[in-house]
Structure formats: structure tokens, C-alpha cells
């Protein structure tokens, strides 16, 4: 008897064998009951699989097509929103840079103006700026007034924050704004890095 053709039976059953391989398998099947029985099992398996019912309770073709159309519209709207968000996200660093530049300009102009006023430069115009409204209590004064009973640490903080102190109101505000901008930029960098990692996976 020729060699068993177990490995080729599936391909023979599926009509995937060509040429002399078909004759080889058929010649073997004519004399081997074991391989013949295996082929019969494959045929029976195909029949059993084919007899199992298809999906039941399906929606009509018209409804199915309409539902696909609805999903496409939804996806299209979502994709437009997504694109707008994506552009906004990409431009965020530019916005932060703009905010930083704007704040620096404001603090620079304010600083120069105050210095000029302090030095008595700028004549009537800067003097007018100072006298236009009666000066109210400064932040440091307000804190001093309300912090009569404060402890030593608070006194030190108040000393640093007073208008003429090393950490005047303008400097403190500038530093706070820089901290917020740095925090936002750091978050943007972290999200950019996370997106990049996700794409690489």
C-alpha cells in the first residue's frame, strides 16, 4: 500500500490539490479504508457545519442599509469635531507662548512706567496717572491691617509681599502667571508624549 495521505485529505476535500497529487491521493484512497473513512468524516463535518442555521431575527436589508448610513453621518460629524479639537490641541503651545509674551509685555510696560514715575520722569502725564484716583490701601497694607495677630512666619511673608519688598505684588503676579503657563505647557507635553507612545504600540 502507498503512504497514507492524511495531511493532504483536507486539501483534496476542498478541491485544492492539482495535477498528479490528485491522482496520488485517489490511488491511495482506492486501497486504504482508514484514509477513506477520514475523508468521509471530513465530508460529514462539512455537511453538519452547513446544516447549522444562519443568524436569526436579522433586520431587513433596507433597515440595515439605513443604520449604516446613520452611523456614517454620526462618524462624519464626530470626525469634524475631532479635527477641530485636534487643530486646537496642536495650536495650544502657540497660544501659551502668546499668553506668556503678552504678560511679559504688560509687566514690562507697568514696571517701566512705575520706575519712570518713581524717578519723576514723564512730567505731567505720569504724575496725572498717579493722581487720577486717590490711592486705596495696597494688598500688603490690607494684609498688614487684617494680620495684626499673625505669627512670625506670616510676618516674614508679609514683609516679602509688601509693595516695596523683594517680592512686590507685580513680581509675585508675574511668577504665578509663569507657573500656570509652565504647568499647562507641561501637561500638553505629557499628553503629546502619551499620544506618541500609543501610536507606536
Amino acid at each position: 500500500m502507498t503512504e497514507h495521505v492524511t495531511a493532504s485529505l483536507g486539501a483534496y476535500h476542498d478541491g485544492e490539490l492539482r495535477g498528479h497529487r490528485v491522482h496520488q491521493v485517489e490511488a491511495h484512497l482506492a486501497e486504504c479504508a482508514r484514509c477513506g473513512a477520514q475523508l468521509e468524516q471530513l465530508r460529514a463535518l462539512t455537511a453538519v457545519l452547513g446544516a447549522s442555521p444562519p443568524a436569526a431575527d436579522l433586520t431587513s436589508p433596507e433597515r440595515f442599509v439605513a443604520q449604516v448610513g446613520f452611523r456614517l453621518r454620526q462618524r462624519s460629524e464626530r470626525s469634524t469635531r475631532g479635527k477641530a479639537l485636534e487643530i486646537g490641541w496642536r495650536l495650544a503651545p502657540l497660544g501659551l507662548l502668546g499668553a506668556w509674551a503678552f504678560l511679559q509685555a504688560v509687566f514690562l510696560v507697568a514696571g517701566v512706567t512705575l520706575l519712570a514715575r518713581h524717578l519723576g520722569l514723564g512730567g505731567e502725564m505720569l504724575a496725572g496717572l498717579g493722581s487720577a484716583a486717590p490711592p486705596g490701601p495696597t494688598l500688603a497694607e490690607t494684609l498688614r491691617l487684617s494680620g495684626a495677630g499673625l505669627n512670625g512666619l506670616a510676618q516674614v511673608v508679609l514683609y516679602w509681599l509688601r509693595d516695596e519688598g523683594p517680592m512686590g505684588w507685580g513680581v509675585t503676579l508675574n511668577l504665578a502667571a509663569m507657573a500656570v503657563i509652565s504647568l499647562l505647557y507641561g501637561s500638553w507635553l505629557a499628553s503629546w508624549w502619551a499620544r506618541r507612545r500609543r501610536r507606536q504600540l
Binding site: 443568524a55 436569526a56 431575527d57 436579522l58 433586520t59 440595515f64 443604520q67 449604516v68 456614517l72 462618524r75
Partner: peptide, 18 residues
């Protein structure tokens, strides 16, 4: 599962369109 199959088939067509 026929319900999941319909849902997934619709999703397949949406991806095909994209």
C-alpha cells in the same frame, strides 16, 4: 450572537467606507 453580529457588521461597513 446575532445582535452583536449585526452591530459588528454595520461597524465593518463603516470602516470599509472610511
Amino acid at each position: 450572537n446575532s445582535h452583536l453580529a449585526e452591530d459588528a457588521a454595520q461597524e465593518a461597513f463603516v470602516r470599509a467606507w472610511q
